[in-house]
Design a protein around this nucleic acid. Structure first.
Length: 283
DNA sequence: AAATGCCACAACCGCAAATGC
DNA sequence: CGCATTTGCGGTTGTGGCATT
């Protein structure tokens, strides 16, 4: 019963990849492109499951990956994005070209958590440790503490079922979140148990680089050529049609009322999208 | 020099969304 | 429309390398 295994485990290698396996995978993808991960191992002569091949390629072998240390600017961006998005590592990685979700996730767990602790910040709540400790002492869980990211908690905040959250972004850019209540969002992955607004008014001072590519449609719908996906030219071409809907979790352009399709004028930009809240998610 | 502990990173697992039929 | 399959994501684990004792 249940799901069939993704591959025939008895005949697949596990653990660290060998150079030969890497070369086989690189060679196959160079010749045939990405995709069809399920059938790729057999076609490429690899004794691996498709998921393993995909992970190896995405996290390690992709030619556009940036190796090396994170800069302080990267750190700060990750901290802000993590505060904004929660553990949406793939979305965070989308803002850091050449970095993978796995890499950022690991980096967060190993470096940035400690960095925040050294600053006296709780890495989970992004609030001063003392405040978190006080909240903990008073019996509040991190999820229940309404404040979120370093702004004062507001117990008197309204509990509207569709709380609008406006994130003000420098460079004349404003990001708006309209968060549906759990009963409104049937597509939420884990249902969500948000009771009350978590971030009624937030200014993260998030300095988004508008040159980053943020396609309105999912890559799957309109996939750009892999070779140009991360090229500076590609970024430049999309500077005038930025929409964060897809990268922030809304698929198929739903709930997107931004001007990305028509090409918004320069200057003030307003992005609107639904941000599904995960169960136990806090920002 | 050997033993032990810690850390960082790669890889795996399970689940949910997306897609195809 | 419903089911099966594929893909992608996030949490967790395993392991190799380095530091310390």
């Amino acid at each position: 019963m249940g799901r069939s295994p993704c591959c025939e485990k008895a005949h697949t290698n596990k653990g660290a990849w060998t150079k030969e396996e890497d070369q086989r995978l690189i060679g196959y993808i160079k010749a045939h492109g990405e995709g069809c991960w399920r059938s790729l191992p057999k076609a490429a002569g690899l004794l691996r499951c498709g998921k393993s091949c995909r992970l190896r390629w995405m996290n390690y072998l992709r030619p556009d990956l940036k190796r090396g240390n994170f800069t302080d600017e990267d750190d700060e961006l990750i901290i802000k994005l993590r505060a904004l998005l929660g553990n949406k590592w793939s979305l965070i990685a989308g803002q850091l070209p050449g970095r993978t979700d796995n890499e950022i996730k690991n980096y967060w767990n190993t470096h940035i958590k400690r960095k925040l602790l050294n600053r006296g910040m709780d890495p989970h709540t992004h609030r001063p440790i003392s405040a978190s400790a006080a909240a903990a002492a008073s019996g509040l869980t991190t999820t229940a503490s309404a404040g979120g990211i370093g702004f004062p908690s507001s117990p008197a905040a309204p509990t509207s079922r569709l709380a609008n959250v406006v994130y003000t972004v420098p460079r004349s850019s404003t990001v708006s979140f309209a968060r549906p209540s759990p009963s409104d969002e049937g597509h939420s992955s884990s249902g969500g148990s948000s009771d009350g607004p978590r971030c009624p008014d937030l200014n993260l001072d998030l300095d988004l680089d508008l040159s980053m590519s943020l396609p309105c449609s999912p890559p799957k719908t309109a996939p750009p050529p892999a070779s140009t996906l991360t090229s500076p030219q590609h970024h430049h071409q999309h500077q005038q049609s930025i929409c964060m809907c897809y990268h922030l979790g809304v698929r198929n352009g739903e709930a997107c009322t931004c001007n990305c399709k028509a090409g918004s004028p320069a200057g003030q930009r307003v992005f609107r999208f639904l941000r599904p809240m995960e169960e136990g998610q806090y920002i």
